[in-house]
């Protein structure tokens, strides 16, 4: 079995999702940013600027590799070619952490480039665990599995999301990536209590926390429908939920995600500083 403290070498500090326009700022004056997360699929080319930047950044920062395309929840087997690409990236980069999503994105030949939802059933549980075993064996290390943002419910689900994720961690030895914004988004969309979700979550298995912004819409019945957009600041209720999480879990590596309408570096640095003030209140 994997030991989360030994496998996951990210510091208990704040990182940001890397965007190439912030390269110079990060190399010159990273401020409150202590580590970076990159999307695995953006670094699978043969060379050029993306690979050169990642090499340079990895000499200065711990790097978390975050896969967005493996389709761990897919009905079919994992793509052996993609597993080999992930292994190659982990081999040459030696990242401090590797994570992926509880979701699916590929069916047959078609890659849909979104994190699509799963029913929480015994059959899904068995399949996801098999896929995680395969992945962990392929990359030779523990992975962290991220809780999703969801927008609708499956009639055939037989267990709640926290039970489902806890069971995966228990069976596969994987760690968990707790996206606090996703908890807030899903809880709002699904009528769950977000605090109860955090309180039931197996926090000892958490190797990383995500924070990001979401958009607010409504469904056809006038119920709030939150969309996980990663395109704006973290909202106050999510900061509150994060503070509650840290109070229970202790300090954890925490990432600010901002993937669309990416702002200038100082805006991201301000979000990172706000996270740091909650993560280590004594030193802020």
């Amino acid at each position: 079995m994997y030991d989360i403290a030994r496998e996951n070498r990210l510091p208990d500090r704040v990182g940001i999702g890397y965007k190439c326009q912030h390269f110079n700022a990060l190399m010159e004056a990273p401020g409150p940013v202590h580590w970076l997360e990159v999307h695995a699929e953006n670094y699978m080319g043969d060379g050029g600027r993306p690979i050169a930047q990642l090499r340079a950044l990895s000499e200065r920062f711990p790097i978390s590799v975050h896969g967005v395309g493996l389709s761990i929840g897919g009905e079919g087997p994992l793509d052996p070619e993609h597993l080999a690409r992930l292994r190659h990236l982990c081999d040459w980069l030696g990242p401090a952490s590797f994570s992926e999503h509880l979701a699916w994105s590929t069916h047959g030949d078609h890659f849909l480039n979104d994190l699509l939802p799963l029913p929480y059933t015994e059959a899904t549980l068995a399949r996801v665990c098999t896929h995680i075993d395969t992945l962990q064996e392929a990359i030779g290390r523990q992975m962290l599995l991220e809780n999703p943002s969801t927008y609708l419910a499956f009639e055939n689900s037989t267990m709640d999301e926290v039970t489902f994720l806890s069971e995966i961690a228990k069976r596969t030895g994987c760690g968990l990536l707790l996206d606090v914004n996703n908890v807030f988004v899903s809880a709002t969309n699904q009528n769950w209590d977000p605090v109860a979700y955090i309180d039931a979550f197996p926090l000892a298995q958490v190797g990383e926390i995500h924070l990001g912004g979401h958009d607010e819409e409504e469904d056809e019945h006038g119920a709030p429908l939150l969309i996980d957009s990663h395109g704006r600041e973290v909202v106050d209720p999510v900061w509150t939920l994060y503070a509650h999480t840290i109070a229970r879990a202790g300090a954890k590596p925490t990432l600010i995600e901002w993937d669309t309408d990416v702002p200038d570096f100082p805006v991201l640095a301000a979000e990172a500083a706000r996270a740091a003030s909650l993560l280590h209140p004594a030193t802020a």
Partner: peptide
């Protein structure tokens, strides 16, 4: 088999996924 939390049809909710896929591509 896809619904809102009250078990009602979930067209707007499903459309979030449609929009995400189309917008990202």
């Amino acid at each position: 088999g896809l619904t809102d939390p009250q078990g009602r049809p979930a067209l707007r909710r499903f459309n979030v996924y449609r929009n995400n896929v189309a917008a990202s591509l």
